[in-house]
Design a protein around this nucleic acid. Structure first.
Lengths: 219, 219
DNA sequence: GACTCTATCTCGGTA
DNA sequence: TACCGAGGTAGAGTC
């Protein structure tokens, strides 16, 4: 990894056009050839960047970075304050817990949390427009399609509504209902779900995980 | 801005939980107190980060960063390879061209590009569920609601369909039609638009801008 | 390669 | 503050 601190102006032409006036910034060049320009605020997003693969042409005061998609980043260096190189090696990578997949897994193991009497038929049940997260049989004999999201927003409701449109074409599933499940569901999404004739249910991830752990402790 | 290159292990507990095993990485601490940890690949996304405002507690081999939301990042330093400080100053900021707002502006100035005979009634016409990008009067006397997107995807079509549902409740608007406008519209979005009874139109941003510039040159 | 969906999404606007 | 929408979304997975 190469770290250059320099007074520079930057120009990007690609998916849009942007200009950075002269100022002091950090230019980060990684082993894979990607380039990011950071200001001294905002942890996440670089001001400008170019993802690998890149062709970097470098002269004393001007870098031209271009990629196969035809995007171009031009950095004009007015003064270099620091230019260092570091060997980092491969990163073993990040391991995560708490994402949608895990929530879906917990609910698949215990669909009663969503509605009493639910029994899992299938996970990732295929339709022409994508897989339905969970398909269950309800106590009343109806089939229940469940869309699981970490955060319940309007798109998730639309997604579930589209799945149901397609599922209803398959008469073998009998009476169909839809339930939208998330850790928290925004008011707009609740309203839309109700207008679309869908039920919704908020579930607590920590509680669900705790419950699961407790159950495992019994054995 | 402080740049530390170090062998470290990192632990994040907050919106999810994550662990980074021991490896050499760049730790970037910005003037506003935000922290980002970068591996030597992928320009954009840090492995871990904490946005400002942060409380940073630092000892020789362990940093604890916490924020008011209760998120915590713990960095254990096994070996510091480099630790430098740089004064960057405020950044004058990025100026952009080519975003949706500008596209909407160009279309508002020249709605005939969408359909011959269209005359603008209103931009950002308010409804209970949000503003309609453009509302126009057509040559045939009907009212046309237009949703403008840079990229035409399925959500945009749903959005326009929802707006029309609400607009139809207002009988003063007369006969209503919807047109979905974008620089490029995906096949799925076209199909959905047609099923929902909506028209769609692809427009060329550069051409539109060029045309506008040409018109201005006439004066 | 194209298309899909997720994200500690980030970031900016607004009520 | 919360909600909502755009993003050069990026990045991962699937077909």
């Amino acid at each position: 990894m190469r770290l250059v601190v320099a007074r520079c102006t930057v120009n990007y032409v690609g998916r849009l056009e942007s200009t950075l006036p002269e100022a002091t910034r950090l230019i980060m060049v990684k082993e894979d050839g990607c380039v990011a320009i950071h200001a001294d605020g905002g942890a996440y997003k670089p001001l400008n960047w170019m993802n690998a693969p890149n062709d970097v042409r470098e002269s004393a005061d001007r870098w031209e970075i271009s990629n196969p998609k035809g995007e171009r980043l031009i950095i004009v260096l007015h003064e270099i304050l620091s230019d260092t190189q570091h060997t980092l090696g491969d990163d073993p990578g990040l391991s995560k817990d708490g994402v949608e997949a895990h929530l879906q897994e917990l609910l698949a193991a215990d669909p009663e949390v969503i509605e009493g009497g639910l029994v899992l038929i299938s996970r990732e049940y295929p339709t022409a427009i994508g897989p339905v997260d969970l398909l269950c049989r309800a106590a009343d004999g109806s089939t229940v399609a469940i869309e699981v999201k970490r955060r319940g927003e309007i798109d998730g409701v639309e997604q579930l509504a589209r799945y149901l449109e397609y599922l209803r074409a398959d008469s073998s599933l009998g009476v169909l209902r839809g339930v939208f499940v998330a850790q928290s569901i925004k008011p707009q999404a609740r309203t839309l779900a109700e207008t679309r004739g869908l039920a919704w249910k908020e579930v607590d991830y920590d509680e669900l995980r705790g419950k699961r752990v407790d159950e495992l402790r019994l054995f």
